[in-house]
Write a protein that binds this DNA or RNA. Structure first.
Lengths: 233, 233
DNA sequence: ACCTGAACACCGTTCAAGT
DNA sequence: ACCTGAACACCGTTCAAGT
């Protein structure tokens, strides 16, 4: 739905060239990003995979930044498509499902996370914010708190989701395939006990549980808080 | 404090070269990033400003990614230094002050935001998480919720802070200096009324208030929620 | 140990030319 | 309208050589 190309699908007959389209370009770009990471996405590799020249790509895309943004937008589109709107359902349950869909998508495409918060030009991230906002509204949150509550949820989902996705993912920037999270925790346990008192204390507990469960536990903490909150401190 | 170079400060006598140091390199890098954005940070410009060759920089830095990470780490260091630890103070008040310090620092250095969440190798971001964690603990949050509460706060502060910093900042990627936020809101108001029902409704209110105030209002919402939350949904 | 700077491989982007 | 592919300017990184 949201990931489809904007231009009308050309009649699949008559011409034998014109195998290219924004859709095809983005599919290839996402595949390369998944396999080789952000640094691995070069026009050389992209055009090789597509069987075109650079000019062909530039017909559909403004520049490399635009290409990556569009690829990110497609990732978010996947999450949105995975959880269709369900009017009448318990809003917080829907929100939780949507958050998990984003989590799963970030797990599949770990390169996308950092670009989601930073770029407001992405239509589907805005769409995601909109859905969070409507769900939070449905749940009865006062009007003047809705925007920042929705922002908080979006930031939590993307921020924590990105971190955990990188931890789970075996591909980080085309190089290391180790158990990233375990390595991080091990590093944490070597930190100074005074200076990093908190991180050292919780380092063990982070490893123990299932990541997806912890992700939603933190989300629920946020939602329960948002649902109950009445005014400012 | 946290922004200082790791290596011992060399005796400022005897040698007449050796004007370089990690500290000097990072200062110049931050200055370039502030003025020209991330794309504007090239080794050419950097070495011109420093009066060195590329090899000189590579003595202190592993590669460009490392350079940017170190620059980001210094930005967070500034925020940490701005709010020294104050045992005995009201933890939530201290947390709020620390969050605002990060906000201000992201306002000064809008390029840093996207790199903070994505990179766990940054010591000072970890330090920031640790302080949030200790403050949340002091405030009486149950042990099993502390880590994700601290993460939520960190993600809110960095995520929303980055967005607003970009909105306020006049330099975005070396080019446009328009009123970014106003433009964003104007774009929001042109969106489809059905599809973006929430964003369109709140678009007006976002513009009205003072940004810093809204930032803390959202943060307080989160903190009040965290403080009151008892269990999962 | 610290720095120089020429050299290298490569990358994003352009554009005149083709269909 | 859509695509080709050679050409260009530039960029990150290396490394033998200096002090």
């Amino acid at each position: 739905m949201f990931g489809m190309s904007i231009q009308p699908s050309p009649a699949r007959s008559e011409r034998r060239r014109n195998t290219l389209s924004l859709d095809v370009v983005l599919t290839e770009a996402v595949a390369i990003l998944d396999e080789h990471g952000e640094r691995g996405l070069t026009f050389r590799r992209l055009t090789e995979g597509l069987g075109t020249g650079p000019g062909g790509v530039y017909w559909y895309v403004q520049d490399k930044a635009d290409l990556i943004n569009l690829a990110c937008d497609r990732v978010v589109a996947n999450a949105l498509d995975a959880v269709p709107e369900q009017p009448g359902e318990e809003p917080m349950a829907v929100l939780r499902g949507l958050a998990l869909a984003v989590f799963d998508e970030l797990d599949r495409h770990p390169w996308a996370g950092p670009h989601l918060t930073s770029n407001p030009g992405q239509q589907n991230t805005l769409r995601l914010l909109d859905r969070f906002g409507r769900l939070v509204t449905e749940a009865g949150l006062p009007a003047d708190q809705q925007f920042y509550a929705a922002s908080a949820v979006l930031n939590y989902v993307v921020g924590v989701g990105t971190q955990m996705a990188r931890a789970l993912s075996r591909v980080v920037g085309d190089t290391d395939r180790e158990d990233y999270l375990a390595a991080a925790v091990a590093r944490w346990e070597e930190l100074d006990e005074q200076e990093f008192a908190f991180v050292r204390r919780v380092a063990g507990t982070v490893r123990e549980h299932d990541d997806r469960e912890q992700f939603t536990a933190g989300l629920d903490l946020l939602l329960v808080g948002i649902g109950r909150a009445g005014g400012r401190a």
